[in-house]
Simulated scan of single mutants.
Amino acid sequence: MILGAMTLCITNPLWVTKTRLMLQYGGVVNPSQRQYTGMFDALVKIYKYEGVRGLYKGFVPGLFGTSHGALQFMAYEWLKLKHNKLTNRLPEAQLSTAEYISIAALSKIFAVAATYPYQVVRARLQDQHVSYGGVMDVIIKTWRKEGISGFYKGIAPNLIRVTPACCITFVVYENVSHLLRDLREKKVS
């Protein structure tokens, strides 16, 4: 989580820039809804008109996002142990590819469901078309106007985008890990 926070310190201006570029509307003349010609132009204009604070909008909710990976790995390892216990296998037993995919997908869904609201809050703070008084203002207004579903807007496409990569990563990791372990054991024997 500490490394995630350090990474966020460096990358938050890029997230703000990405969000602003995505939320541009054509033909807007209002200076608060200024048009950007590209990434560098957006970075310069955000800094020029909003200062460093503008580049770090959404930073606080972004810190909550650093827990995503920790939650995912915790869930993944817990699900593997429970699965092996239910199937009467040793805790470190190798699973089938389908089992790894299922467990990886479930762990990703859990982590996304637990941390997704921060992404909504962060994106809303970074939107140049709406002004909020901070993180709590976004949370209160979202809750009042949209309820819990307001914090999960866009979660389905996000899950469709991130889950396959997660499954592939864990299948490759587990198979390479077991291959290396087997090679080490053969070398020792």
Score class of each variant (00 low, 15 high):
Pro117Leu: 04
Gly4Val: 06
Leu21Ala: 05
Ala165Phe: 14
Glu99Trp: 05
Tyr25Glu: 15
Leu14Trp: 12
Lys145Cys: 09
Leu86Asp: 13
Ser107Thr: 05
Tyr118Lys: 05
Thr97Lys: 05
Lys153Trp: 08
Trp78Ala: 11
His129Glu: 01
Pro164Ser: 10
Tyr116Cys: 06
Asn84Trp: 08
Val121Gly: 06
Gly51Glu: 02
Asp182Gln: 13
Ala104Cys: 04
Ala5Leu: 09
Val162Asp: 14
Gln94Ile: 12
Thr87Ile: 14
Ile160Cys: 12
Gln24Phe: 01
Trp143Ile: 05
Ile155Cys: 04
Asn175Glu: 07
Ser189Trp: 05
Ala111Asp: 07
Val121Ala: 12
Gln119Ala: 15
Gln72Gly: 10
Gly147Ala: 11
Cys167Leu: 03
Gly54Thr: 13
Leu3Ala: 08
Leu43Gly: 06
Leu180His: 02
Tyr118Ile: 07
Thr169Lys: 15
Gly134Thr: 11
Leu95Cys: 03
Val176His: 07
Ser189Tyr: 04
Gly69Arg: 11
Tyr132Cys: 00
Val28Trp: 03
Val29Trp: 10
Val112Ile: 15
Gly26Tyr: 08
Arg181Ser: 13
Gly147His: 11
Leu86Trp: 12
Tyr56Phe: 04
Val60Thr: 13
Arg181Thr: 15
Leu179Lys: 12
Ile101Ser: 14
Met6Ser: 10
Gly58Lys: 02
Ile10Ser: 02
Lys48Ala: 15
Arg20Gln: 11
Asn84Leu: 07
Ala5Trp: 08
Lys187Glu: 14
Arg53Gln: 08
Ala70Lys: 07
Ser32Ile: 10
Ile148Pro: 01
Val60Ala: 11
Arg124Asp: 02
Thr142Leu: 05
Asn175Thr: 04
Glu77Trp: 11
Arg34His: 06
Val16Tyr: 01
Met22Trp: 10
Met22Arg: 12
Thr17Asp: 00
Arg20Trp: 03
Gln94Val: 12
Ala70Ile: 14
Ile148Thr: 04
Tyr116Ala: 02
Tyr152Ser: 04
Leu86Ile: 06
Gly58Trp: 01
Thr19His: 12
Val138Ile: 00
Arg20Tyr: 04
Lys145Gln: 09
Ala98Lys: 13
Val171Asp: 09
Lys80Thr: 05
Leu3Pro: 00
His68Phe: 15
Thr142Asn: 03
Phe73His: 07
Leu81Met: 09
Leu180Ala: 06
Tyr100Ser: 03
Met136Asp: 08
Val60Trp: 05
Asn84His: 06
Met1Tyr: 05
Ile155Thr: 05
Met136Pro: 00
Glu77Thr: 12
His68Pro: 06
Thr17Tyr: 01
Asn12Val: 14
Leu106Trp: 02
His129Ala: 06
Leu3Met: 08
Ile101Val: 15
Phe110Ile: 15
Glu77Tyr: 13
Phe170Tyr: 14
Tyr116Thr: 05
Val162Leu: 15
Gly154Ile: 10
Ser96Cys: 06
Phe40Gln: 15
Ser102Lys: 00
Val171Glu: 10
Ala111Lys: 03
Cys166Pro: 04
Gly133Val: 11
Ala111Met: 08
Val171Tyr: 12
Lys45Cys: 09
